[in-house]
Amino acid sequence: DSWHDTVDGIELELHGADEELLKLAKELLKRGVSEEEVRRIIEELLK
């Protein structure tokens, strides 16, 4: 799946992010949310 590559990229960027955020990112990508949107959501949550 192409979203796996996206998640791997996000995981590299979010090496400090907790497991729950990564699960959320994967779930959003699986549901068709764009990579940009996922990054934006996670950045908001990390604030």
Rank of each mutant, 00 (worst) to 15 (best):
D1I: 07
D1Q: 05
S2A: 10
S2C: 08
S2T: 12
S2F: 13
S2Q: 11
S2E: 13
S2L: 09
W3M: 15
W3V: 14
W3Y: 12
W3N: 14
W3A: 15
H4L: 15
H4T: 11
H4W: 11
H4E: 11
H4N: 14
H4I: 10
H4G: 12
H4K: 12
D5W: 00
D5K: 01
D5E: 13
D5M: 01
D5V: 06
T6C: 04
T6Q: 11
T6W: 12
T6G: 15
T6R: 05
V7S: 10
V7M: 12
V7A: 11
V7G: 09
V7H: 07
V7W: 05
V7I: 12
V7Y: 07
D8A: 15
D8L: 09
D8T: 12
D8R: 08
D8I: 14
D8N: 14
D8K: 09
D8W: 00
D8E: 12
G9H: 14
G9A: 09
G9C: 10
G9V: 15
G9N: 09
G9E: 09
I10E: 07
I10T: 11
I10R: 12
I10P: 15
I10H: 15
I10S: 14
I10Q: 13
E11G: 09
E11A: 05
E11R: 08
L12P: 10
L12Y: 01
L12G: 11
L12I: 15
L12A: 10
L12W: 02
E13D: 07
E13A: 01
E13L: 03
E13K: 00
E13C: 03
E13M: 01
E13H: 04
E13S: 01
E13W: 01
L14M: 09
L14T: 08
L14F: 10
L14P: 11
L14W: 05
L14V: 13
L14K: 10
H15Q: 11
H15T: 08
H15G: 15
H15F: 05
H15W: 06
G16N: 06
G16C: 03
G16Y: 13
G16T: 14
A17K: 09
A17M: 11
A17T: 10
A17Q: 07
D18Y: 12
D18F: 11
D18L: 10
D18R: 05
D18C: 03
D18K: 06
E19H: 05
E19M: 03
E19W: 04
E19G: 04
E19K: 06
E20L: 11
E20V: 07
E20D: 12
E20I: 09
E20C: 02
E20K: 07
E20G: 12
E20R: 03
E20A: 08
L21Y: 06
L21T: 11
L21S: 04
L21P: 00
L21E: 02
L21V: 08
L21K: 03
L22I: 11
L22W: 03
L22S: 09
L22M: 12
L22N: 08
L22D: 08
K23M: 11
K23Y: 06
K23Q: 09
K23W: 05
K23T: 10
K23F: 06
K23I: 12
L24C: 09
L24Y: 07
L24W: 05
L24A: 05
A25S: 03
A25M: 09
A25H: 02
A25L: 12
A25F: 05
A25W: 04
K26A: 10
K26W: 05
K26I: 14
K26R: 11
K26P: 00
K26M: 08
K26F: 05
K26L: 09
E27V: 03
E27P: 00
E27R: 03
L28S: 01
L28Y: 02
L28D: 00
L28T: 00
L28Q: 01
L28C: 02
L29M: 10
L29T: 02
L29R: 09
L29F: 02
L29P: 00
L29S: 02
L29H: 04
L29I: 12
K30G: 12
K30E: 14
K30L: 14
K30D: 14
K30W: 02
K30Y: 02
K30R: 08
R31V: 11
R31A: 11
R31N: 14
R31Q: 13
R31I: 11
R31H: 09
R31T: 12
R31S: 14
R31F: 06
G32M: 03
G32Q: 02
G32D: 02
G32I: 01
G32E: 02
G32R: 01
G32K: 01
G32C: 03
G32T: 01
G32H: 02
V33Q: 03
V33F: 14
V33M: 14
S34N: 14
S34H: 10
S34Y: 04
S34G: 12
S34T: 14
S34F: 05
S34P: 13
E35R: 15
E35F: 12
E35W: 13
E35H: 12
E35C: 07
E35V: 14
E35D: 06
E36L: 13
E36P: 14
E36N: 13
E36F: 05
E36Y: 03
E36I: 14
E37G: 06
E37P: 00
E37S: 07
E37Y: 02
V38C: 02
V38S: 01
V38D: 00
V38F: 03
V38R: 01
V38I: 09
V38H: 00
V38T: 04
V38G: 01
R39N: 04
R39Y: 09
R39C: 03
R39V: 08
R39A: 06
R39I: 11
R39S: 05
R40C: 02
R40F: 06
R40L: 10
R40G: 05
R40T: 07
R40S: 08
R40E: 07
I41H: 04
I41R: 04
I41W: 06
I41E: 01
I42Y: 02
I42G: 00
I42M: 06
I42K: 00
I42F: 04
I42Q: 00
I42L: 09
I42E: 00
I42D: 00
I42R: 00
E43G: 14
E43R: 14
E43M: 14
E43D: 10
E43T: 15
E43H: 15
E44Y: 06
E44N: 07
E44C: 12
E44Q: 13
E44M: 13
E44R: 07
E44D: 09
E44I: 11
E44S: 15
E44K: 07
L45C: 05
L45P: 00
L46G: 05
L46E: 03
L46D: 02
L46V: 11
L46H: 08
L46T: 07
K47M: 07
K47W: 03
K47I: 12
K47Y: 03
K47H: 13
K47F: 04
